[in-house]
Design a protein around this nucleic acid. Sequence first.
DNA 1: CTGTTAGCGCATTCAG
DNA 2: CTGAATGCGCTAACAG
Lengths: 331, 331
Amino acid sequence: MRVTIKDIANMSGVSVATASMALNDRPGINKDTKKKVLEVANKLHYRPNHSARSLITKKSGCIGLIVTSIRNPFFSKLVDVFNKEVEAMGYSLLLGITNDKIKLEKKYIDLFIERNVEGLIIVPTIEKSPDLTQLYMLKSMHIPFVFCTTAYYGLKADVVMTDLMEGEYQMVKYLIEKGKRNIYFVTCDQSLMLSSLRLDGFKKAHADAGLSFSNDQIIETVPDYDHGYKTGIELSKLKPDAVVAINDFLAWGITKAFKDCEISIPQDVSVAGYDDLLYSSLFEPALTTVKQPITQICKKTLEVLVKNIEDDTQEAKTYYISPKMMVRDST
Amino acid sequence: MRVTIKDIANMSGVSVATASMALNDRPGINKDTKKKVLEVANKLHYRPNHSARSLITKKSGCIGLIVTSIRNPFFSKLVDVFNKEVEAMGYSLLLGITNDKIKLEKKYIDLFIERNVEGLIIVPTIEKSPDLTQLYMLKSMHIPFVFCTTAYYGLKADVVMTDLMEGEYQMVKYLIEKGKRNIYFVTCDQSLMLSSLRLDGFKKAHADAGLSFSNDQIIETVPDYDHGYKTGIELSKLKPDAVVAINDFLAWGITKAFKDCEISIPQDVSVAGYDDLLYSSLFEPALTTVKQPITQICKKTLEVLVKNIEDDTQEAKTYYISPKMMVRDST
DNA sequence: CTGTTAGCGCATTCAG
DNA sequence: CTGAATGCGCTAACAG
């Protein structure tokens, strides 16, 4: 049997209540009693039972983080940074990986509710018509949550994300200024926020330059490496002078396809991504992309979450983090 | 206030005990009563309080996973696979990221003890003289744990890892057979198991071929990209005909340094890694490496852990997973 | 300053 | 088959 507070109370010759106060560093306790209790606790390697404490304090000391993927270096880093920041705040991190399945997202939300998380950070999936029941439930239960990097349409909640519209606008503007006139935009389902906002940037850049574009230049696919490669093969026949992908993974796949088709980058065609994965600068050619400043995003997200934990009556708001162009060798 | 089992008992017109039995699918309950209870629970979105349940059942339903890093794609995948497997077993995963700090490892072990994890999976740090107090405590508390991918010397416990000696042996043997006679071995502190076992493979391959080598060919450094680059710059002056790094990250850094020094791979020098990171095959030149079969490692680790959970009297053992040579363009 | 009492939400006896 | 009573380990009142 694990050593409980009762054991250390007995051993110290005090009551359980006194032991509890000593252990929790509460005021109004005799120095010597406290010292004694702490000594005993230390000698017996006492660890408080988290469940018992949580049951009575109604606090779990946990923040739930739901991410779509952890294999994607962008999210690896996001998780790493959140973990550090959350720990620094004295909380623990509970992690849920959905791999873009709304079903798993729902499951993790349920799980996290059971575990009484203080709040939730959610990176939405890319499912087309997501079932948001669990999210509505969170609202009705007044469990604070914040969307991170993107959000679901149709649900009022705080969001922290880079200004996707602005980021893509800058990228496309830059390409137009470089003389590109046949820019393809590789994205995912346009009903998704992360897709539609970026597309708005693409459109605005064209409009500002007085240029038109055809809908054929917009290609919808699944935003991963393999689909990037397939799309790249198709694109190779269309002779674009630039290709903008909504994330670096896609851009990598496209790049590989172009190489296999012996199309030179950036001589024959420019390729640009979005995210700025760690490895994108090691890639050949080093990828031009839009950096999402992860540390900044995480810090802001937690700041907003904590504000919600302390006061959940505030109006939902979207917080934009400035993206940053990273011009490298692929454009 | 959250809806409790008491609420659903009241609403269903039964006692708490009956509600509990119905909810937990216990035998000896009237079909109709059960149906009624389940309906009410569902309507009120009842979620059992995990702390309360855990307090009484003395089970948390959690497995703790302590990894060194999550930014390293090898461990990203490891975490992803463990997460899936653990969920499939009906447990939840608690994650601790140490970034190779023994201090954090200790902290997470304490935290996980407090949370009553059923068992622990530990990827050891690379600190030179680690303080193993917490690990001894786990043993004394009969909380099962299994080391994964490598282990600490000086502590008897189950280990699941690829046969590092065998893997490196195959790699070096292959290079020797290719005619390499001046092979440098880039590793980390030799007091660490992950280093010394691989070095044994390096030595054995030389011995088997009747070749000798100088200690200068063994270079100790920190096994990451940046240190790989630095080492690569130094190596460029030494004119090796092959370089074997104990992980792919190191090999990437070395490769980059060689490129910057205009040394051609594999014409001037062969470079080999270990791990087989997802991106190593996309790298240029595609990296020759030794694959650690992650899924297999994870499954075996969990199998061993579960065995320990059910019966912790078994003798500690090391389980070897066969590594696999991946010959690509860099050698 | 310390001990007594009560109760968090739940599962498990044991009567009925 | 169901309900009342008990207690998991801990903290929070309140007396003393």
